[in-house]
Every structure is written in C-alpha cells, then in structure tokens.
Design a protein around this nucleic acid. Sequence first.
DNA 1: CCAAAAGTGTTTAAATTACACCCATGG
DNA 2: CCATGGGTGTAATTTAAACACTTTTGG
Lengths: 230, 230
Amino acid sequence: MESGFESKFKAAISVDNVVFGFDNNDLKVLLIYRGAEPYKECWALPGDLISLDQDLDESAEIVLQNLTGLDNIYMEQIHTFGRVDRHPFGRVFTVAYFALIKIEDYNVKPSSWAEEAAWFPINEVPELPFDHNEILEYAKNLLKSKIRRQPIGFELLPKYFTLTEIQNLYEAILETTFDTRNFRKKLLSMNIIIDSGKMQSDVAHRPAKLYKYITKKYLQLQQTGFTFDL
Amino acid sequence: MESGFESKFKAAISVDNVVFGFDNNDLKVLLIYRGAEPYKECWALPGDLISLDQDLDESAEIVLQNLTGLDNIYMEQIHTFGRVDRHPFGRVFTVAYFALIKIEDYNVKPSSWAEEAAWFPINEVPELPFDHNEILEYAKNLLKSKIRRQPIGFELLPKYFTLTEIQNLYEAILETTFDTRNFRKKLLSMNIIIDSGKMQSDVAHRPAKLYKYITKKYLQLQQTGFTFDL
DNA sequence: CCAAAAGTGTTTAAATTACACCCATGG
DNA sequence: CCATGGGTGTAATTTAAACACTTTTGG
C-alpha cells in the first residue's frame, strides 16, 4: 500500500494568470490565443507549465512576461486548482494568480507560443479550455471582495484619474451603483488620494479635477490601524 | 532554450494542514511528531506528499485522515508555497489547508508515520521543519481576518456554547478584548444563534445559558444580502 | 455570606443614507 | 444657448461605543 517517493515526483505545475484591466468603463481580462497543444487555436488565460528551477511567484512573473510581455505588475496568488483530469497531458496542478494593470500604460505583445493577446470585456469571455472559466470566476469573486478592503482599484486606473472614473470602476466591478456625493465624501475622507492640481482637458463638459493615489499615505495609515473599506 | 514536457513532470505536491482547535480559552494547533524522513523526530504540521490519482481537495482530507484520524471536518485551501529549496528531497510544492475543529468532539489518533499528535497553544509552537512556521503564520493571519467576516468561529466551539465562550474565542484569536454587552448585543442581533433552553451545570457560579449556532439561518440571511461581521 | 462569572439598558458619538441643484466647458 | 458630465451640503437615520450594577450558583 505504501508507494515510494518516485511515483509522486511525476506532477507538473502550471501557472495561470488572470490579468484584469479597466478601459472605457469596462472591466476586461487579458486572454491569449494558443499556438500550442493542447487546446491549440483557442483563447485561454495566459498560463504555462513552469520549469522547476525557480520559486513559484517568480515563475508566475516569468510565464506572464513570456506570453504577453507584461512585466513588473501587481500580482498575487489566488488559488490552486488540482482536479485529476484537468489537463490532457498528465497530472498538472495549476496555481492561479491575479494581476491588475493600467491598460494604457502597457503594451501587450504576444510572444512565445501565444499567437495573439487581447482584452475581453469580462462579460464577453468565450468558453475557455481546461478549467479556465472556473478560475476566472474565482478571480472575479476575489476581485470583488478584495477591492472593497484594499486600495487595489488604483492599480487599474491611470496615475491621474477623476473621481468619476474611480466610481465607475467600483460600480463596474461590484455591479452596483453608488451615490456620487457619498462615494466622494467617503473616499476623500480616507486621505489616501490627493488633488493633483491638474485638470482634464479636451472634454465637452466641465473638466474634472485629476486625483492621485498616494501609496505612502495608505501605508502610514495602515500602520496606525486604519483599514480601507468601501 | 525550449525544454520538453518531460523535464516539467518531475515535481511532487504535498499538502500541509493547519488544524486549529480551541480549548480552555486557548487557541491551539495540531502538530504531529514525524517518524519518517526528512526531519524525522520533529514536530511538524500534519502534511505529506500526495499520490497523483486523487483530486487536490480530496488528497488534503486523505492526508489528514491518515496522519491524525480526523475526518469530515471543515477544511479550506489557503495558499500554495513553492520555494525551490523548501524540501530536501526534490521540488515539492505544498498546498496549505486550514481546518477548524471542536477539540472535544474528536479523538486525535496518530497513525501512518505520525508517531504522536498533540495540540500546541498557538504561542508555544516550536521551531518547525520545512517552511511550516511560515505556513502557520499565514494561516493565523487568515483565521484572524476570516473569523470576522464568516461565522467559522462556531466550528471551534462545542454544539452548545455560552456567550462568554464565544467571546473568549474571538478575543483569543483577534488578540483583543470586547465589551461584553456590546459583543452580545451585536452577535444576538444577527439572529444566527439561538438560546437552546439548556444551561451550564456544575459551575461554581451562576450557570450560563447555552446557545446553538443555526447554519440554516445564516445561509438564509446570506441569500438576502446579509453579511456576517464582528 | 463570599467568590465568581452571568446577565442586562441607556446615553452619546460617529457613520451612513437620502436627496437636488448650480457650474464649467465644447460645440 | 444647449448638452454633458462635474461638483457640492444638510438633515435624518442607523450603527457603534462607552459605561456599572444586580443576579445566580457552589462552596
């Protein structure tokens, strides 16, 4: 009944990245078009088997960088999926990560076996291979709960943003609406964003003030027991 | 530069379980005394390499059952640890789970290569092998945040418990104190626990009422948008 | 009757909600 | 001058916080 160690060292690990971006009031997710088996010629989460000579978190960055060119972005491990039959080539456990980026700050360039890379509105994601739909669902739910308790929403916005933009972001992710005055009051009272002095321009209406998120202030406040909550 | 699939199917996966229990106003964690290499003759988290023919969550239950006899308990995946050098025998990724049990309802029986199994007060845990201290730390933090937002504390208490007991539990885990009246008011106003009609007996002071957590009520309330928050 | 923990209400402060109009710009 | 979104304050309600004494049992 006791099996030796050899039989257990036969698994592979992959990483699957759920990269969220925000654009035109839409929450989007980055998919690649697979140019390799299995599931060649399918849109899928950017993920790949990892080589076994790097730390896990490092592997996640490398895989993403390889397939999409994205580098140095906010990434966090979310869950490991390990159904026996989830991969046709053998026993592959996949560790899912989620990442948030400012779409306009990065140029996504498919490489390695990724033939294309494109942003899909979160509600227009096609059927995905493996258990990628399940992973995406998990990531969406995590994003929803996390964005209310940590100031990660700013990762999805440009450096300078308007209060309306951040409200739209929250409304899109949480699928709800907020009262403008109350939303602004609460957000501003946290003292983690400041008026940059700059203004919108070239808009066909009253230009909005541009604000800026101050990480340092958040970290300071956190030290003194403050918790972000929206 | 491209490596074949073969070189990637050489990892092993283990599961490490952080089993929390509560007893005598103390939060405790279950450790086993290892009777197998590596780190033979050390106290460690109950964990083991998994065989590759079961789903991951199922493996976690099997490992725990094997080593400690515990079965059919609340378990949840928390994080995967994958430092390259974390295991002396090769590349082993470990998926950590946390579990909560009512100490008095279960009899822990070490088996397989676990020579002993014992409850350690959370602040008297010795140096552990592998990255188990890191895992335990992660689990403790997760427990702290989770217990405030989900009614999982009841998993640590006997079926019938007093309000003082649950308050002690919260105070022990969160390392804080609560005002008795406010704590009770808030907890009772959630309508997820009820007075069982039973009373404490054989105590050298006024006996307390025994309450009971009603899962069904929580699930109903959750449906209608209620969120647990203490 | 003493020790030990159980049980209970009110007042104050803080946070959240609801709600409607004027402003600045481009076309 | 019109269309578009930007920007603002107050009152009412709800929720959270602070706080101290009486009760019941066993020994």
